[in-house]
């Protein structure tokens, strides 16, 4: 559904690239996480994929359309959930959705129903200027689903949301995937990506440094060991054992048989640790 090849983009035109020769493909019904710290080139890439920035060099196809020649047919098929709450503050939540719904040529979702889906039914007739930031974020999220998109670009969907709403947003993303929607998820929240994405690409300084499923990345770059805590002679003892080493396996079995084990922790790497390993810096900055 999305094919990117040798994509470059420069804001300065002096050889400094925000996106420097990236390439990837996203299949139908896949949740593809595009991960990286601020300034890595995530937003630039998403803007190019959605036609907000021109393609300077490289090839981008979205739903079979060359993005350079993207016309109405494509925009009827994609949805974009922005990170910033770009809404008409003087219009109500319902009016915002009704306005955007009227721009599409395809059958659209019922705005009231969408508001209910993101927990804003009670605030439907309130002006958006009176919404909290989290409510505005949810409205932007709902707006991106108006045209029942085939390809859904979601930028930092859980930023600034409380845990319950975050959970609801993640459920909606999974529901849409079940419907066959292709999701391009841009985030620097590794936990969200780990939980939702079928595949992720790590972006650092405009380049993709790794792309695979979260599981494969963690296995490839993490430590395949188990931290075991057991009580021996009244003392708490921590041991790191590898399931790949025969002696460690035997030791673990003994500890389990003696019923001395108090906790077992898999020591596979988190996505953030994998990123740090690959990029030499964290995702926060």
């Amino acid at each position: 559904m999305i094919a990117v090849d040798e994509l470059y983009h420069s804001y300065t035109g002096n050889g400094t690239y925000a996106v420097a020769g990236i390439g990837f493909e996203v299949g139908k019904g896949e949740i593809f996480g595009f991960l990286g710290p601020n300034g890595a080139g995530k937003s630039t890439t998403q803007k190019i994929l959605t036609g907000l920035l021109p393609v300077q060099r490289g090839r981008v196809e979205v739903a079979g359309h060359d993005i350079r020649r993207a016309r109405r047919e494509l925009f009827n098929r994609i949805g974009v959930s922005f990170e910033s709450p770009n809404l008409y503050r003087k219009l109500s939540g319902l009016e915002n959705l009704a306005f955007y719904a009227s721009l599409y040529d395809v059958p659209t979702a019922d705005p009231g129903e969408l508001l209910g889906r993101v927990g804003l039914a009670d605030a439907a007739h309130r002006r958006v200027g009176a919404y909290s930031k989290g409510m505005q974020q949810r409205l932007v999220f709902a707006r991106s689903l108006l045209n029942r998109p085939d390809i859904w670009f979601v930028d930092e969907p859980t930023a600034g949301l409380d845990p319950a709403t975050t959970q609801r947003v993640k459920e909606i993303i999974r529901e849409e995937r079940e419907r066959g929607v292709t999701v391009f998820l841009t985030t620097h929240n590794m936990l969200v990506a780990d939980e939702l994405c079928d595949r992720v690409a790590f972006l650092n300084e405009g380049r993709i440094v790794a792309a695979d499923s979260p599981r494969e990345l963690k296995l490839r770059y993490g430590k395949n060991v188990i931290l075991v805590e057991h009580r021996t002679e009244g003392r708490l003892v921590r041991e790191v054992l590898s399931p790949l080493v025969e002696a460690d396996r035997a030791r673990l079995q003994r500890l389990l048989a003696d019923e001395r084990v108090e906790t077992l922790h898999s020591q596979e790497a988190t996505l953030e640790e994998v990123f740090i390993k690959l990029a030499g810096r964290g995702l926060g900055g």
């Binding site: 925009f75 922005f82 910033s84 770009n86 955007y100 721009l103 599409y104 932007v140």
Partner: peptide
């Protein structure tokens, strides 16, 4: 309000 950006990803 950056609403033009939202408009531009519609038909």
């Amino acid at each position: 309000e950056q609403t033009l950006r939202a408009y531009r990803v519609t038909p």
